[in-house]
Structures are given as C-alpha cells and as structure tokens.
C-alpha cells in the first residue's frame, strides 16, 4: 500500500490532504489498538469493582478499583507514547495481549465472586480480598517469606555442594565409586519426604531436620548428573591435557569439571524443583514458620484469601529462583551454542 498518493505530493486539495492525514493516524492507532484495548481491559476491571455493592464484607474494593483504572490508564498512556517511540511501542505490543487477557480475567473474577456470588464463598475470594491480605497481613507474610528463603537457601546450597563433590568423586575415582554408588542407588530414588517422620525425631530441631531433607532432595539429582557429566568427558581431552604436562589436579579442575558443567546445571535445576516440594511439605508438617506453614495456618482459619496470596508469592519465589539459576548458567556456559531460554 503506497503511503503517499499523487494528490498528497502535489497538494491539490486541502480536503484530500486532511483526509489522508486522518487516515494515516487511524492506521497508526489501529496498529497499536491492542495496547489501547489492554488499557480498556484494566479499566473494565476497575469498573467491575464499582458496578454494584459487594456481596460480602471486603474493605479494599475502592482501592482495587482505583488501581485498576490507574493501571489501565498507564497502559493506554504507554500505548499512546508508542505511536511516536518505536521502542515503547514494541514493548507495549509484545505485552498487550497478555495484559488484555489479565485485565479481562480479573474483571470476570470480580464479577463472579464479589458481585454476583456465582462461585461459593469463602473458597473463592475476590481480588480485593487478596489485596487486603497483602496490605493488612504483610508483616506475617514477609516473615514467612524470609523463613522459607532462609531454609531453602541453606538446604539447597549444602545439598548442591555435597552433591557436586560426591558426583565429581564418583566420576573420577573408581574406589569412591565402588563404595558410594550402591548407597546412592539404594537411597537416592527414595523421595526425601519419606524421611520426614524419622528426620523430625533424629534431628535436634525441625529446622535442621528440614535443612537435611532439602539437602537430600537437592543432592541426589546433582550427584547423579555431575557424575554422569564427569564420566562422559571425552578421553581425548585428558590425552591432550596430559601431553601438555597436566597433573591430576589440573585434569580434575580444569578439564573434568568444566566439561561436566552443562550436566551439573541440569542436576541443579532438577534438584531445585525437588527441593521446593520438600520445603513446602516440611514447613506444613513440622517447621513453625515459612510459606508452607502460612498456607497450613490459613487453611486452619478458613482464610482462603491468605492461601491464595501466599500461593502467589510462593510461585513468584520459585520462578525467581529458577530464573536466577538460569542466569548463572548462561554466564558460566557462554561457550555453549543455543542454550535453552527460560
């Protein structure tokens, strides 16, 4: 489609020119329509909050409505800026379909819970109830987040370190392999949660018991993958290093370990997933703090909004942890071609 017509170029007729200018503006707006639609979607969410009185007693409906309008306005503003700025326009257009969907889903959620009560209460709290948790129960949530992160980080780091060292030792030394391999085969596949009752008896505190279990859940995949990584290093690398004068320590630290790193990261990734499960179960069963405990506690009080709020935080934390792991991997494995994007 030509952008300039003959009449444009010759300025024959002011009317035609004006019409073509309006149509080009329209075209530009149409290109960014999805951005404006996303703004409207969030505005619809705001409206849905104000549409009629809540069927229950929720104190944050007004604020949530304002937030909905504010976010909708911000999206629309960004879409408008996108008409001139290519960078902003691209960023808005990439996110707009998701933003639109989220706005509409929030509006629908608001209507079927707080306004029409189509979903049974209190099991399906409306958005404002969850926002209320974040504003009114924040200290306890933050405390739980810190407790969970502390427990998870401690257990994971211990498990990853022990698993890595064990894996390298089995992969490198026949003698270590002889003794450790059968134990690994026997104990490794057992779900770490199966140890829970024993661990809580055997360890002096529920915190140390949980740390042990998380370390166990992390350690097994890290050990196995590190070991298979070290074992699969091509002997040609060792030959090259040896002819160049490498000593055994050089072969371990400068050949075997770097060559095995891609495998190690698969193990770290699998271990992370397994350790999340153990963390939550341990917190539900014995530890008196953390997000798992918060979930359990909220359920005991039938505080379903608190459960959803905690679940949301938990998923952000787990996803953040995996993103962080992938970032570390991308830094360390820049030499690999085409690593998977998280």
């Amino acid at each position: 489609m030509p952008t300039y017509s003959v009449s444009d170029a010759l300025e024959l007729d002011v009317g035609t020119q004006l019409a073509s200018r309006t149509s080009s503006l329209l075209r530009a707006v149409r290109g960014h329509a999805i951005g404006f639609a996303a703004g409207l979607g969030w505005a619809a969410f705001g409206l849905s909050c104000l549409w009629r009185d809540d069927i229950g007693d929720w104190s944050r409906t007004q604020e949530v409505a304002i937030a909905g309008f504010a976010i909708g306005g911000a999206i629309a503003l960004a879409a408008a800026v996108g008409l001139w700025s290519r960078a902003v326009g691209g960023a808005v257009q990439r996110r707009a379909p998701w933003l639109l969907l989220i706005g509409l889903l929030l509006a629908a959620w608001e209507v079927v819970t707080a306004k029409l009560g189509l979903l049974p209460q209190p099991f399906f709290p409306p958005p404002q109830a969850i926002v209320e948790v974040y504003t009114d129960d924040l200290p306890k949530l933050v405390e739980s987040v810190f407790a969970s992160v502390k427990l998870q980080l401690g257990g994971y780091l211990i498990g990853a370190a022990v698993g890595f060292v064990t894996g390298v030792s089995i992969g490198w030394s026949r003698a270590v392999g002889y003794w450790v391999h059968p134990v690994l085969r026997f104990i490794g596949p057992l779900p770490a949660t199966a140890w829970l009752p024993i661990a809580f008896f055997a360890f002096p505190s529920s915190w140390s018991a949980s740390t042990f279990l998380i370390a166990l859940a992390t350690g097994f995949p890290v050990t196995v993958l590190t070991w298979s990584g070290v074992a699969s290093v091509s002997s040609a690398y060792y030959d090259v290093a040896r002819t160049l004068g490498a000593k055994p320590s050089f072969l371990v630290f400068k050949v075997a370990i770097p060559a095995a790193l891609p495998h190690v990261f698969v193990g770290l990734f699998m271990g992370l997933g397994a350790s999340f499960a153990v963390l939550v179960v341990a917190e539900m069963m014995g530890v008196k703090s953390g997000l798992g405990w918060y979930l359990q506690w909220a359920q005991g009080w039938a505080a379903y909004a608190n459960m959803y709020a905690a679940l949301l935080v938990m998923s952000l934390l787990c996803s953040g942890a995996i993103t962080a792991l992938f970032k570390v991997r991308d830094r360390l494995l820049v030499w690999q071609k085409g690593v998977v994007k998280w």
Partner: peptide, 15 residues
C-alpha cells in the same frame, strides 16, 4: 610437554 601431539580432531576445549 617436550613431546606434544596434534591429533586428527583439533580437540580444543570448547569452554
């Protein structure tokens, strides 16, 4: 290292 081998494959360390 006074006797160095160049193999058929370059076997460079990819990392």
């Amino acid at each position: 290292p006074s006797r160095v081998v160049v193999f058929q494959d370059p076997t460079l360390f990819p990392w």
